[in-house]
Amino acid sequence: MVAEVASSASVARTRFAVAQPARTVLAASAMSVTKETVARVANLARIALTEEELERLAPELDNIIGWVEQLGEVDTANVEPTTAVIPNTLRLREDVVTDGDCRDDVLANAPQAEHGFFAVPKVIE
Protein backbone atom coordinates (compact mmCIF):
# COMPACT_ATOMS: atom_id res chain seq x y z
CA MET A 1 0.00 0.00 0.00
CA VAL A 2 2.69 2.46 0.96
CA ALA A 3 4.59 1.72 -2.22
CA GLU A 4 1.48 2.37 -4.29
CA VAL A 5 0.82 5.70 -2.75
CA ALA A 6 4.40 6.68 -3.43
CA SER A 7 4.10 5.69 -7.05
CA SER A 8 0.89 7.57 -7.57
CA ALA A 9 2.43 10.61 -5.99
CA SER A 10 5.28 10.39 -8.47
CA VAL A 11 2.74 10.34 -11.28
CA ALA A 12 1.22 13.47 -9.86
CA ARG A 13 4.56 15.17 -9.57
CA THR A 14 5.53 14.62 -13.16
CA ARG A 15 2.52 16.60 -14.22
CA PHE A 16 4.49 19.64 -13.26
CA ALA A 17 7.81 18.44 -14.56
CA VAL A 18 7.39 18.08 -18.29
CA ALA A 19 11.05 17.66 -19.00
CA GLN A 20 11.15 14.47 -16.99
CA PRO A 21 10.97 11.43 -19.26
CA ALA A 22 8.03 9.09 -18.91
CA ARG A 23 10.37 6.22 -18.13
CA THR A 24 10.84 7.50 -14.62
CA VAL A 25 7.17 7.24 -13.97
CA LEU A 26 6.92 3.81 -15.42
CA ALA A 27 9.99 2.60 -13.58
CA ALA A 28 8.79 4.02 -10.30
CA SER A 29 5.52 2.23 -10.64
CA ALA A 30 6.93 -1.09 -11.75
CA MET A 31 4.53 -3.77 -10.57
CA SER A 32 2.45 -1.36 -8.56
CA VAL A 33 -0.65 -3.47 -9.06
CA THR A 34 -0.05 -6.52 -6.94
CA LYS A 35 -2.36 -9.42 -6.33
CA GLU A 36 -3.21 -7.90 -2.96
CA THR A 37 -4.13 -4.61 -4.62
CA VAL A 38 -6.37 -6.37 -7.11
CA ALA A 39 -8.03 -8.29 -4.27
CA ARG A 40 -8.67 -5.08 -2.36
CA VAL A 41 -10.01 -3.23 -5.39
CA ALA A 42 -12.12 -6.20 -6.47
CA ASN A 43 -13.65 -6.21 -3.02
CA LEU A 44 -14.47 -2.51 -3.35
CA ALA A 45 -16.10 -3.34 -6.70
CA ARG A 46 -17.89 -6.33 -5.10
CA ILE A 47 -16.46 -8.88 -7.48
CA ALA A 48 -15.52 -12.12 -5.76
CA LEU A 49 -12.40 -13.18 -7.65
CA THR A 50 -10.98 -16.65 -7.28
CA GLU A 51 -7.32 -17.17 -6.56
CA GLU A 52 -6.73 -18.13 -10.20
CA GLU A 53 -8.51 -15.03 -11.42
CA LEU A 54 -6.35 -12.90 -9.14
CA GLU A 55 -3.19 -14.57 -10.41
CA ARG A 56 -4.23 -13.92 -13.98
CA LEU A 57 -5.60 -10.42 -13.56
CA ALA A 58 -2.84 -8.89 -11.44
CA PRO A 59 -0.13 -8.84 -14.14
CA GLU A 60 -2.68 -7.82 -16.79
CA LEU A 61 -3.92 -4.92 -14.74
CA ASP A 62 -0.41 -3.94 -13.76
CA ASN A 63 0.43 -3.84 -17.43
CA ILE A 64 -2.60 -1.71 -18.28
CA ILE A 65 -2.03 0.66 -15.39
CA GLY A 66 1.63 0.96 -16.35
CA TRP A 67 0.53 1.81 -19.87
CA VAL A 68 -1.98 4.49 -18.87
CA GLU A 69 0.57 6.07 -16.55
CA GLN A 70 2.27 7.61 -19.57
CA LEU A 71 -0.33 10.35 -19.11
CA GLY A 72 1.85 11.55 -16.27
CA GLU A 73 4.27 13.02 -18.79
CA VAL A 74 1.68 15.46 -20.18
CA ASP A 75 2.00 18.98 -18.84
CA THR A 76 -1.47 19.86 -17.68
CA ALA A 77 -0.63 22.83 -15.51
CA ASN A 78 -3.37 25.44 -15.96
CA VAL A 79 -5.57 22.97 -17.84
CA GLU A 80 -9.10 22.45 -16.56
CA PRO A 81 -10.47 18.91 -16.56
CA THR A 82 -13.19 18.34 -19.14
CA THR A 83 -16.66 18.79 -17.66
CA ALA A 84 -18.80 18.69 -20.78
CA VAL A 85 -17.53 17.42 -24.11
CA ILE A 86 -19.89 19.62 -26.06
CA PRO A 87 -20.39 23.02 -24.40
CA ASN A 88 -23.72 22.63 -22.67
CA THR A 89 -25.08 23.20 -19.20
CA LEU A 90 -27.55 21.36 -17.08
CA ARG A 91 -31.25 21.73 -17.83
CA LEU A 92 -33.63 21.59 -14.91
CA ARG A 93 -37.08 20.07 -14.96
CA GLU A 94 -40.19 21.47 -13.31
CA ASP A 95 -41.37 20.15 -9.96
CA VAL A 96 -44.26 18.06 -11.20
CA VAL A 97 -45.14 14.47 -10.33
CA THR A 98 -45.05 12.69 -13.68
CA ASP A 99 -43.85 9.26 -12.75
CA GLY A 100 -44.07 6.43 -10.24
CA ASP A 101 -47.15 4.40 -9.36
CA CYS A 102 -45.78 1.55 -11.48
CA ARG A 103 -44.85 -1.02 -8.86
CA ASP A 104 -45.50 -3.95 -11.16
CA ASP A 105 -42.98 -2.61 -13.66
CA VAL A 106 -40.51 -1.83 -10.92
CA LEU A 107 -40.69 -5.33 -9.47
CA ALA A 108 -41.30 -7.28 -12.69
CA ASN A 109 -37.68 -8.33 -13.21
CA ALA A 110 -36.73 -8.84 -9.58
CA PRO A 111 -35.06 -12.16 -8.75
CA GLN A 112 -37.05 -12.10 -5.51
CA ALA A 113 -39.97 -9.81 -4.73
CA GLU A 114 -42.44 -10.35 -1.90
CA HIS A 115 -45.38 -8.31 -0.63
CA GLY A 116 -44.45 -5.40 -2.87
CA PHE A 117 -40.83 -5.32 -1.70
CA PHE A 118 -37.54 -6.45 -3.19
CA ALA A 119 -36.17 -9.20 -0.96
CA VAL A 120 -32.49 -9.62 -0.10
CA PRO A 121 -30.63 -11.77 2.43
CA LYS A 122 -31.20 -10.40 5.90
CA VAL A 123 -29.02 -7.43 6.67
CA ILE A 124 -27.87 -7.00 10.25
CA GLU A 125 -27.27 -3.34 10.97
Partner: peptide
Protein backbone atom coordinates in the same frame (compact mmCIF):
# COMPACT_ATOMS: atom_id res chain seq x y z
CA UNK B 1 -41.31 15.30 -7.08
CA UNK B 2 -37.96 13.68 -6.40
CA UNK B 3 -34.57 15.23 -7.09
CA UNK B 4 -33.87 13.34 -10.30
CA UNK B 5 -37.17 11.69 -11.19
CA UNK B 6 -40.82 12.58 -11.53
CA UNK B 7 -41.98 10.25 -8.73
CA UNK B 8 -43.85 11.72 -5.77
CA UNK B 9 -42.19 12.51 -2.44
CA UNK B 10 -45.36 12.17 -0.34
CA UNK B 11 -44.85 10.44 2.98
CA UNK B 12 -46.39 7.12 3.94
CA UNK B 13 -47.38 5.49 0.64
CA UNK B 14 -47.53 1.75 -0.03
CA UNK B 15 -44.05 0.26 -0.56
CA UNK B 16 -42.46 0.83 -3.97
CA UNK B 17 -45.45 2.75 -5.33
CA UNK B 18 -43.59 6.06 -5.44
CA UNK B 19 -40.76 4.71 -7.46
CA UNK B 20 -39.94 5.52 -11.06
CA UNK B 21 -37.71 3.35 -13.19
Amino acid sequence: AKLFSGASTAFGAEPNTQVSL
